[in-house]
Nucleic acid binder design. Structure first.
Length: 260
DNA sequence: ATGTCAGCTTCGAGCTGA
């Protein structure tokens, strides 16, 4: 089972690049972030024509997540529990029925949190605490669980080309990293780091200041696996080349394969 | 040395968010 995560930065803007990548990468499941579309306006036919079931959790203008799946989906749920007042569309879950095993798959778009300090950073930390509580519940199921998406967290200095630039940013502050570790330390495996060590691996390059040409990137898109999912992990890669194409997103896809 | 992009509002440039 191949599961990919891709912050597309707007479905309208990626209406050509996204299907082109899907046709090449052929993930069974694609978790999309920043669809920037309401559910009614999401161009589902483009993906349904390719054999994908489409489940969206959108909102007007910003945010929005989606699951595309060639495998059957069950028990889709939208929104991160823990705050009925929260109207931002950043979380979607579904059970993917694999050939051998069912996997609970969660797609997430974690708040950016800048500027610091301020209400946006407070919201980020509060959202991460809600994520921790949901992660704890999911672990208790003792089933394979995958939580993937744009975490807006640079886990360590080696995950940025220029860590000094990010030192006081919401993506890298010690408090942000601690909140991320608090979730990991419940017993999750970060799939990319389970298979690849060392610096120089990125999933995002800013549109500004020629960041891509200078390889001035950061690694902020992650896959967290429950122990039962980690046991099934066979690969984890970043589709870096996508960033050099026409009209790219500022993020690239990252994917795993599971023996499921 | 500097350098962007996407979407919204409401027709087009300025704002927000990243």
């Amino acid at each position: 089972m191949k599961i990919a995560s891709f912050n597309i930065n707007g479905i309208k803007a990626r209406i050509e690049a996204l299907p082109a990548w899907l046709d090449e990468a052929e993930p069974d499941v694609a978790l999309l972030q920043e669809i920037k579309s309401v559910d009614e306006n999401f161009p589902r036919e483009i993906f349904e024509d390719r054999g994908y079931t489409v489940e969206t959790h959108g909102q007007k203008g910003f945010n929005g997540v989606a699951i595309l799946s060639k495998l059957p989906l069950e028990d889709v749920s939208r929104g991160l529990p823990g705050d009925p007042e929260d109207e931002q569309a950043r979380w979607i879950e579904a059970t993917v029925i694999g050939d051998k095993t069912a996997v609970r798959v969660c797609g997430l778009y974690l708040p950016n949190g800048n500027p610091v300090p301020g209400p946006k950073y407070d919201y980020k930390l509060a959202w991460m605490e809600r994520l921790r509580l949901r992660a704890q519940e999911l672990l208790a199921s003792e089933e394979p669980v995958v939580m993937a998406g744009d975490y807006n967290i640079i886990p360590q200095d080696e995950d940025a080309a220029r860590p000094e630039v990010w030192a006081r940013d919401a993506l890298a502050l010690p408090e942000s990293r601690a909140a991320f570790r608090r979730i990991l330390n419940l017993g999750f495996t970060e799939a990319f780091r389970a298979r690849t060590q060392g610096p120089g691996h990125f999933t995002f390059w800013d549109y500004q200041a020629g960041a891509w040409n200078k390889n001035d990137g950061i690694r902020i898109d992650h896959f967290l696996l429950s122990p039962q999912a980690a046991d099934l992990l066979t690969d984890c890669q970043i589709d870096k080349d996508i960033r050099a194409r026409e009209k790219p997103s500022d993020h690239v896809p990252i994917w795993i394969t599971l023996d499921a």
